[in-house]
Design a protein around this nucleic acid. Structure first.
Lengths: 95, 95
DNA sequence: CAAATATTCACCGTTATCAGTGATTATATT
DNA sequence: AATATAATCACTGATAACGGTGAATATTTG
């Protein structure tokens, strides 16, 4: 069986700013769901090798494959919320 | 000059679940910063064509290029916060 | 409406992904 | 420790990304 991964293995960073962190996030979610690599790949409609590389932090993967996994596993990505400040009520400002 | 894009052009979705939405987010941020495609590409260390394709929602782009842009523009991505619930104090649960 | 600027597109050569298969290595279970 | 299971790696052939350049197409400004 695969190595068990819990949230304690997740990077302490709040932000997903690298393929490594994204890969760890995906692996943590998959193992939490208790599904193996091969089944997850089939579920997400990508190859086993590709999923393995994504989880291992390989940055040379396509957005297509990554979003297939994120959506397949129900992982929700957000940027900082669209919250116009008082100084910019017209809504040109991201925070 | 390029078409002006403000946050009003941003997708109403809270979640970034496709290359299209990610591309729009990037473009909104770049235009908000007032820098042109070529300068932004140089700043992020990628080619102009690649940045153009990313902003236009092409899913066949590498994570490497995308993270170069996100980090170059200071766009912070997050998943749902790591908040272990009372029922899982050992930390196996994402919300 | 014309001029200037910004973006997209088509092409090139190089390089690398991708799915699939089978072999190797790592991890769990008894 | 031995067995079963899971994940990684090395290969194949097909397809496509990547950066660079230059041309074509927006888009903005005077």
């Amino acid at each position: 069986m695969a190595k068990k991964v819990t949230t304690s293995d997740m990077p302490s960073t709040d932000f997903i700013d690298s393929a490594e962190i994204l890969g760890k996030l995906i692996r943590a979610k998959r193992t939490e769901l208790g599904i193996k690599l091969a089944d997850c790949a089939a579920l997400c409609g990508i190859g086993i090798n590709t999923l393995s590389r994504i989880e291992n932090g390989n940055a040379n993967c396509t957005l297509a494959a990554v979003f297939s996994v994120l959506n397949g596993l129900g992982i929700k990505l957000t940027s900082k919320a669209l919250t116009p400040t008082a100084s910019s009520s017209s809504g040109e400002e991201w925070i």
